[in-house]
Simulated assay, not measured.
Amino acid sequence: MTLTAQEWLKKIHELPLDRPVRIMNVCGGHERSITMAGIRSALPECVELIAGPGCPVCVCPEEDVYQAIQLALRTDMILVTFGDMLRVPVNVPKKEVRSLEQAKAAGADVRPIASPREAVRIAQQNAKRQVVFFAAGFETTTAPVAAMLLEGVPDNLSILLSARRTWPAVAMLLDSDAPGFDGLVAPGHVSTVMGPEEWNFVFEKHDIPTAVAGFQPVSLLAAMYSVLRQLLEGKRFLDNCYPELVRPGGNRAAQAQLAEALNDTDANWRGIGVIPSSGFSLQKRFAKNDARLQFPDFDTENRKRAGQMPPGCECASVVLGRINPNQCKIYGHACTPKTPVGPCMVSDEGACRIWWAAGVRENTATGVKTVADSSSIPVLPEKPE
Results as ranks from 00 to 15, higher is better:
M148A: 12
V90P: 03
A68K: 02
E96K: 12
D182C: 13
M172A: 11
T370V: 14
G180S: 03
Q255S: 09
I208H: 04
D297S: 14
S41V: 11
K235V: 15
R121V: 05
D76T: 02
D175G: 07
V132R: 01
G312Q: 07
I330Q: 02
W269M: 09
K369M: 11
R236L: 04
D373F: 11
L86E: 02
V346G: 00
P20T: 07
P248F: 13
P325I: 11
A51N: 12
K11I: 01
G307N: 10
G195E: 05
W355V: 02
A171I: 00
L220G: 03
E31L: 02
N200P: 06
P116F: 12
V88N: 05
Q70R: 15
R111W: 02
D299I: 13
T300N: 14
R270G: 07
C344P: 12
A259R: 07
V21K: 01
A223R: 11
F201S: 06
R285P: 00
I23C: 03
L262Q: 04
C60H: 01
M172E: 12
L160P: 05
N251D: 15
L221E: 08
E244M: 08
Q327N: 13
M345E: 10
A123W: 00
L71F: 13
R121E: 09
K383G: 13
N302D: 14
I69V: 15
D373Q: 10
I275L: 13
C27R: 08
R322H: 09
D373I: 03
Q130A: 14
D348L: 05
N268L: 14
E151C: 01
N91C: 08
K284Y: 11
L220Y: 10
I39M: 04
A365Y: 04
I272Q: 08
P217D: 13
I12A: 03
A253F: 11
R129T: 02
V21L: 10
A306F: 12
I330R: 08
S278D: 08
D290M: 04
P325G: 07
F133T: 01
C352Y: 04
E349Y: 05
A169D: 09
A351F: 00
A256Q: 14
S176I: 09
S191R: 06
H189R: 11
V185R: 03
G183K: 01
P144S: 12
D155Q: 15
D109Y: 01
V21Y: 13
R229P: 05
R229G: 00
D177W: 00
G152A: 08
K205E: 15
A267F: 14
R292C: 06
A123N: 07
A163L: 05
F138P: 00
R236S: 12
E301N: 09
L238C: 10
G52W: 06
R270E: 03
V97Q: 10
A372F: 12
G137M: 02
A358Q: 07
V131D: 07
L3T: 00
V346D: 02
L100D: 05
G188R: 06
T141D: 00
M194V: 15
A135K: 00
S158V: 04
A72M: 09
P144H: 14
T142D: 06
V131C: 05
G367R: 13
R236N: 14
P276N: 10
R129Y: 06
K128W: 00
P378M: 14
S317P: 00
L220T: 08
C313L: 10
V145C: 02
G250V: 10
L232E: 12
V170S: 10
M36L: 15
L221M: 03
V318I: 15
G52H: 05
T2Q: 14
G234K: 08
D239F: 13
